[in-house]
Computed example of a mutant assay.
Amino acid sequence: MHSAPKIVVIGGGSGQPIILKGLKKCHVDLTAIVTVADDGGSSGALRNYLNMVPPGDVRNVLSVLANVDEEIIDVFQYRFNSDDDMLAGHALGNLILASIAEQDNSIFSAVNRLSKFFKVQGNVFPVADEPLILHAEFTDGTVLDGESAITAAGKKIKHVWVTPQFTLDEHRLPEAPSEVVNAILNADIVVLGPGSLFTSIMPNLMVPNVAEALLATRAKVVYVANIMTQKGETDGYSDADHVRAINEHVGERVVDAVIMNTAPVPDDYIDWKKWNEVSKQVISDPEHVRSAGAVPVVGNLLELRDDGAFHDGDKVAQLIMKIAEAKNID
């Protein structure tokens, strides 16, 4: 049997678990690197109350990669009702992560312990062992701090960056643990996305030693292009525009291939009130993807469910595996 390819998936939000769930079924050595810049919902409240890394995205990744009875995961993922006073809206798994992180004084250690409890397939690494603040400069020249505020602004973003939330040195840069850097350097494939470009993917890439590792690695860097644009943030963006934004933020061309959906999203299917952050289908532009220095890898990757448009994680995983097995992707 061939050795399992080492695949690292970088991201956050709801898109990353979909891809991880598909890759979990494949013969792979899997690592998930998860953003720690979220400041909304239960994660944001715990972050503010306990001065801890927001646990929500990490919790969802652990749940997907766990190899325990589904009943255990259902309990871990349980969210308290909105009328439960101080527990309202909190996911039980977030509270468990918070308690272990407080006990160990480290979210990285807490995730490692829970990974063993849940018999996680592969590795789950928060991109930093401290909460990060996401900052954005918009094209109108204004600046906002905080992922939730940036998303709510609904304005076109020019540039984002991250800083440590708690520091006495305003010049101190965030730093990923050595496990994160080594996973990227030793990978065969590094997958970016899918997910909100500026608020789920970029916060990871803006950690300086993560960007350096992406530029130094011999791995093929694959971007899974979003199916839908996000209001304000990426309105009118093609898949090539997403690639250019990633390359510009990292500082050099880093994306080698782009996995792109070819199936049209029916206009009358999406519940626009339920999925109020999305706007229109991302413009497919293989020619300009090539001009950005990346190879288009296309397929019908659309899954219509819950009145929304999502990636079919199994189909995306199959394309990632084909890239991993190929000697070249030109």
Rank of each mutant, 00 (worst) to 15 (best):
P194G: 12
R218P: 03
L215I: 06
D140P: 11
A240H: 05
S178W: 09
N247S: 01
T262F: 05
D140T: 04
L132S: 09
E170F: 13
A176E: 02
P264C: 08
T167K: 09
I150S: 00
A219P: 02
D188K: 14
P131L: 12
Y223L: 13
H171L: 15
M260A: 15
D235V: 15
V162D: 03
N261W: 10
A183P: 03
L134Y: 06
D256M: 10
E170Y: 13
T199N: 09
S238E: 14
V258S: 11
V255H: 07
K220M: 11
T229R: 02
V191L: 13
S148T: 15
I227W: 01
H249S: 15
V221W: 01
K273M: 14
N204M: 08
G195F: 09
K220D: 06
L132H: 12
G146K: 12
K155F: 04
N182D: 11
G251E: 01
L205S: 03
R244F: 03
G154V: 07
G141P: 00
P266H: 08
W161F: 11
G236L: 07
A183K: 03
V143Q: 09
V162P: 04
L214K: 00
K158P: 00
K220S: 13
M260L: 13
V255S: 01
V210L: 00
N261Y: 07
T217S: 06
V254R: 00
I246L: 09
V210P: 00
G195Q: 08
T167S: 15
D235K: 10
V222N: 02
G146C: 13
N261R: 07
Y237D: 04
V258K: 04
V254A: 03
L132C: 12
E233K: 05
Q165A: 14
N186G: 08
A213N: 00
D169V: 12
V190N: 02
K231N: 14
D267F: 06
I270R: 01
Y223C: 13
P177G: 10
V250H: 03
L144H: 07
P264H: 09
E252P: 01
E147W: 00
D188F: 00
A216T: 13
V160Y: 01
S196C: 10
A136L: 03
A176V: 05
V160R: 04
F166G: 06
E175G: 03
W272S: 13
S200C: 14
L215E: 06
P131N: 12
E212A: 08
D169F: 11
E233R: 03
T163F: 08
V162L: 10
V243N: 02
H171M: 14
L132T: 07
G251Y: 05
D140Y: 03
V221H: 02
T142D: 04
V224Q: 04
V221C: 07
V191G: 10
V243H: 05
G232F: 07
D268H: 12
W272R: 15
W161M: 05
N226H: 08
I201F: 07
